[in-house]
Design a protein around this nucleic acid. Structure first.
Lengths: 229, 229
DNA sequence: GACGAATTAGACAAGAGTGTCTAAATTTAT
DNA sequence: ATAAATTTAGACACTCTTGTCTAATTCGTC
C-alpha cells in the first residue's frame, strides 16, 4: 500500500521530468532533421539522457514521434483557446482590438516554439501518417476554427461587423492578417515582431474595409471624433 | 570538327532524356520521403535507370537535390509568368475576371505537380539549405510578387480599384483567395476543383468589398445595369 | 546508511544506404 | 558493320542507425 506525499503523479518526480525533456528534445530534432533524418542518439543527447532511457520511456522511434505530435497538438490548442478568450467581444476600438488579437494569436500560438514545430511536422510528415494527422485535424482546426468563427458571429450579432458567413470571415481574417508572413512561414522562419504587427495592421484594415459597419477605412479617427462629440 | 544535325543539344538525344527523367523521379521521391529518407536506388528505379547512371549524371545526392530545386523553381516561374500574362487589365466583369485569374493561378501554378513539389521541398528542407533557398527566394517570390503587384497597380490606375499599396494588395489578394485552402496545403493535399473555385469566389468578393470602386458587393448586377443604360 | 528502482555507458547484431569499381551489354553515329 | 560512348548489373567497402542486452552506477526514499 503506497500512499505518496505528492498526489498528482505516481511515478517518482524525476521520471516524468525526463519524459518531458525527451519529448521536448525529440520535437526539436524531428523538426530540424525530419523523421527519417532524426537520430535517437542525438535526441538522447539533447535531452540530457542516455539512449536506453529514451527506449525505456517511449518504446521506439515511431511511438516517440506520435507522442511528440500529440503533445504539441495539445499544448497549441491550450494556447489558442487561451488567446481566443481574449477576443474583443465589446470592442472600444474595433480596429485596435482586432489588431491586438491578431498579434497575440501570432505571437502566442503560431510563431512560438510549439506552433512552429507542430506546423513543420504537419508539413513534413503529414502525408506519411494520415491517421495521426487526421486526429490532429479533428483536435486542432476542427475545434479551434468554430471557436474563432463563433466570436466573429457574436461581433456581427452585436452590430460591429457586417458578415454573412462567420466561418468564411474567420478564415479570411487569418488569411489577411498573415498575408505578409507567408514566405517567412514557408521557409520555417520566425517573423520579427514589427513584421507581425505590420501584417496584422494591414490585414485588419482591409478586413474592416470589407466588413466594418462604418464605411471609411480610418475608423480610428472616426471613433475619436465620435468620442469627443 | 563536329557538325550535328540537331543543333540544340550536343550530348546524344537519349542522354538528356535520361537526365530529365532522373530529375523528375528524384523530385517525387524527395517530396514523399524528405532528403534524408530519399533512397537513390528508389529514384533510379522510378526513373527507369540504373543507379550508376544517376551518379554519372549528377555526382551525388546533394547535387541531385540542388538540380531538382533549380528545375522546379524555373518551371514554376515559367508557369506563374504565363498566368500573370492572363491578368485582366481591362476587365469586362471585374469580379468574374479576378476569380478566373485566381483559379488559373491555383490550378496552373500552386496545385499542379511542380508547385506542390516545390512548396513541399521549401517547407521541409528550407532550413537545411539556406543559400539554395535564398536563391529560390530571389528567383521566385522576388520576381513574381512585383509582377503581380504591378498588375494590381495598373488596375488601380485604370480606375477599377481603390488601393494605396499595390504590394500589400497583391499579398492580401492571394491570402484571401487561398484562405480556405490553408489546411489542405499544410497537409500536402490537393484541393478539389470546386474547393478552389469556392475559396477564390469568397476571396475575390471580400477583396472587392474592401477595394472595389463601387460600394456594393454585387458589382456584377451593378455593371449589368450600367451596361444596359 | 541501505534498499529498490531508475539510469547509464558501452558493446553488440542486424539492416540499410551511399558512393565506387569493374566487366559485360547496349545504344548511337559513322 | 564498326567504333565510341553510354548504360547496366552486381559486388564491394564503408558508414550510420536502430533496437537489445548487460553490468555498473546513481538517485530517491525510508
Amino acid at each position: 500500500m503506497k500512499l505518496h506525499v505528492s498526489p498528482d503523479t505516481f511515478p517518482p518526480r524525476g521520471h516524468e521530468a525526463k519524459r518531458i525533456s525527451i519529448v521536448d528534445a525529440a520535437a526539436g530534432v524531428f523538426c530540424r532533421e525530419g523523421f527519417a533524418g532524426a537520430n535517437i542518439d542525438l535526441i538522447a543527447a539533447e535531452a540530457g539522457v542516455s539512449r536506453q532511457t529514451v527506449y525505456n520511456h517511449h518504446g521506439d522511434k515511431e511511438k516517440l514521434f506520435v507522442a511528440v505530435v500529440r503533445d504539441l497538438t495539445e499544448r497549441c490548442n491550450t494556447g489558442i483557446f487561451a488567446t481566443i478568450a481574449t477576443f474583443p467581444d465589446q470592442p472600444k476600438d474595433l480596429e485596435a482590438d482586432l489588431i491586438g488579437f491578431a498579434v497575440r494569436l501570432n505571437q502566442n500560438c503560431i510563431c512560438n516554439r510549439d506552433g512552429k514545430f507542430l506546423r513543420k511536422l504537419i508539413q513534413t510528415e503529414g502525408e506519411r501518417y494520415p491517421e495521426l494527422f487526421a486526429e490532429w485535424r479533428e483536435q486542432g482546426p476542427g475545434r479551434t476554427w468554430p471557436a474563432i468563427a463563433a466570436r466573429f458571429a457574436r461581433l456581427a450579432y452585436g452590430g460591429y461587423l457586417a458578415i454573412e458567413d462567420p466561418d468564411v470571415a474567420a478564415r479570411q481574417f487569418l488569411g489577411l492578417v498573415n498575408a505578409e508572413l507567408q514566405t517567412t512561414f514557408m521557409l520555417g522562419g520566425t517573423p520579427r515582431e514589427d513584421e507581425v504587427l505590420q501584417s496584422a495592421t494591414n490585414g485588419v484594415r482591409t478586413f474592416l474595409r470589407a466588413f466594418g459597419k462604418r464605411r471609411s477605412a480610418t475608423s480610428v479617427e472616426k471613433q475619436a471624433a465620435l468620442a469627443s462629440a
